[in-house]
Design a protein around this nucleic acid. Structure first.
Lengths: 230, 230
DNA sequence: GAACTATAGTATAATAAAAATAATAATTTA
DNA sequence: TAAATTATTATTTTTATTATACTATAGTTC
């Protein structure tokens, strides 16, 4: 590939939209209908408009695809390899979003749907790398604050919360220690409600007061077992 | 400002180059000679060439300005506010670099020089925000791995290392506890050499084996006292 | 050369946090 | 009503953090 150095770049945002569904972390993908990478799956994305900033562009893409807003959205990383797009020079600013399954009302079609992160179909461009990076970032975030609540329904049991943590951190957690730490999280509110439809002992429901998530007590996953690259 | 939505974006990289000099963290700035922001100071930056990726562009800028390579360089954040550049739509991918003062052989002029981060001159564009964000990121990094060694000379005393930590973390550290943790850092090598020219008791010199910096034992700043925004 | 000054270096106890363990309670199903 | 399943609570052990005070080694001063 020969580069004409006077040609301009194109800039897009791509949003890794993650939810918790059927006891698995799933990511929203669209099937490409055109070349390049026709029939491969891709993260939802779009061009950044000149009138909007990057966050606004990502929020717009998210809204277009899922009709949700006001959720956890974070700039992830900007990918700019000259060869990441086979036809032109496209730099993409990747975002990731954690959304509640119950908030999402998308109509899944053969061209749009949720895919288990542990079992992804063939992906277009460098989107596999982007998804992997977003999961790494989610793990790092979870060590700092309980972002996992973004994946849970408004009312949830501690077991559901623990399960979300286990899926993100990719390791089993001890139920008793998890509960002890979780209960000390600022912003966690114990409700006087219990699950009903379960076939076993009902579990107490909790909810989150969203305000206080930057508390220093808000994280409760030990960092020690994780090795983080410098 | 009225936007022509068909106009293209321009993409730059800006590199926050930080060093430790005269017992202070200092950042390399260039004085702008043209409008906009004539006579204000700016982070070194440049346009991303079509043939290079973002890391390469940042490394090139770093090399052009300081003639150093092979140092700690990390993508920071991409800033894309439509109004951040008054004349055109410039999206910048910010990087930050930690460099050793002894490695740098720049000729400081009235248009290029080091400035204390605690006492910055008037800055162009959103560069104040970018520098602040880079220091925040450095603090977060330091909690994960001893990147501060990037600021130290090849051979350093534990007191110098502690001082680098204190400047980055903006708090006093207890000498005994710091030394205990520092000595348990993987990759730290105790030398049979001591400082000489000091008029006081000589201090033992240490060095770092760069290889093992992703060790889980490599970080030794407690996270508890820091509040991190979600 | 004795006293002083400044920084380098060390040992240990108190406190707090994390990890590891077992037993009991509440519900549905067989 | 016994068995199965999930929810919930308490305690101990281990590890990490914090707090504390003293000794060591050089140069400097008198």
């Amino acid at each position: 590939m020969i580069f004409n150095e006077t040609k301009t770049h194109e800039i897009t945002v791509d949003v890794v939209i993650v939810t918790l569904k059927n006891d698995a972390l799933q990511v929203l993908l669209v099937k490409r209908t055109n070349e390049p990478f026709k029939d491969k799956w891709a993260i939802p994305g779009g061009y950044v408009r000149l009138s909007e900033n990057l966050d606004q562009a990502a929020l717009r893409v998210l809204k277009e695809r899922t009709n949700v807003d006001n959720i956890y959205l974070e700039q992830l990383y900007t990918f700019g390899d000259p060869l990441r797009h086979p036809n032109s020079r496209v730099i993409t600013c990747a975002y990731f979003a954690l959304v509640r399954a119950e908030d999402i009302q998308i109509v899944t079609t053969p061209e749009l749907g949720w895919h288990k992160i542990s079992d992804l179909p063939p992906l277009a461009f460098d989107h596999k790398e982007i998804i992997e990076y977003s999961m790494k970032r989610t793990r790092e975030r979870l060590e700092l604050c309980p972002v996992a609540y973004q994946l849970l329904n408004e009312k949830f049991t501690l077991t559901e919360m623990q399960r979300a943590y286990e899926l993100i951190m990719r390791k089993k957690l001890d139920k008793r220690n998890f509960r002890k730490k979780a209960l000390s999280t600022e912003g966690l509110i114990e409700l006087d409600e219990y699950t009903k439809s379960s076939s076993k002992r009902p579990a107490r429901l909790y909810t989150f007061e969203n305000i206080k998530l930057n508390s220093k007590r808000a994280h409760f996953i030990s960092k020690k077992k994780e090795k983080i690259k410098c």
